[in-house]
């Protein structure tokens, strides 16, 4: 059966309509969960609001379990799913740069779009910075082209990397998530007790 578009079950012409609908659903959930507020998001780094961790981990776990079951029942062919290829060293560098950008900007690209929608000027500036950042990257691309393509490990999955089945990876992930939910809930209670004001 699935995935529908790569299998040709849904014709390509519907591609962009579906993209728009999926985007709307994505944006709605992001905004409704409170990702349109940068102070809400960065709370995860200071312990006063772990909404990012909760939403993020729950989403990953639900999608992971769902994909495995879909595969089991033959509804989706996991081999046709696009598995993000791993480029070891550039990804490490990119993730570290993004981590700093995350704390400074308080948004990530997807959440900044929803924040613009409800009228946040800082989100507009963030998106402008995003534009500039990607522009700078493309301009100076020749200088680190070699590095950009280095450490290619192909579309390797977590299970393949550690030599275990991806079902086991999913279970481990769920357990980690549940433990993280509990710990962060305790931390949040403690931190919020000491906070004088907490407004958005």
């Amino acid at each position: 059966m699935g995935p529908l578009i790569p299998q040709g079950i849904i014709p390509m012409g519907w591609d962009f309509v579906i993209a728009l609908l999926i985007g709307i659903a994505f944006g709605f959930v992001l905004e409704a969960s409170g990702f349109s507020s940068s102070r809400n998001i960065t709370g995860v780094f200071y312990g006063y609001n772990f909404v990012v961790l909760r939403v993020f981990f729950t989403a990953v776990v639900v999608a992971m379990i769902g994909l495995q079951y879909f595969d089991y029942f033959g509804w989706i062919d996991l081999n046709q799913i696009y598995v993000l290829p791993t480029f070891l060293s550039p990804m490490i560098v990119g993730a570290i740069i993004m981590g700093v950008g995350f704390v400074l900007g308080g948004f990530c690209p997807g959440t900044s779009y929803t924040a613009i929608a409800i009228g946040k000027i800082d989100a507009m500036v963030f998106t402008g910075g995003l534009f500039l950042g990607i522009f700078l990257f493309s301009e100076f691309f020749p200088f680190f082209e070699q590095f950009y393509y280095s450490g290619n490990m192909g579309s390797i999955t977590i299970g393949e990397f550690f030599g275990i089945s991806n079902n086991l990876v999913t279970l481990i992930f769920v357990v980690i998530a549940v433990v993280a939910f509990y710990i962060t809930w305790r931390i949040e209670l403690r931190v919020r007790k000491n906070m004088i004001q907490y407004k958005f």
């Binding site: 776990v61 379990i65 495995q68 079951y69 089991y72 089945s165 079902n167 086991l168 999913t170 279970l171 992930f173 769920v174 357990v175 998530a177 549940v178 939910f181 509990y182 809930w185």
Partner: peptide, 26 residues
């Protein structure tokens, strides 16, 4: 902690564990 959360998290773990014990797919 809310009892409902404990139940929900239990379901989540069961679902994930279920993947491991399912008979191997043909």
């Amino acid at each position: 902690m809310n009892k409902n959360y404990i139940i929900l998290m239990g379901i989540l773990i069961l679902l994930a564990a279920g993947l491991l014990v399912l008979p191997l797919k043909n």
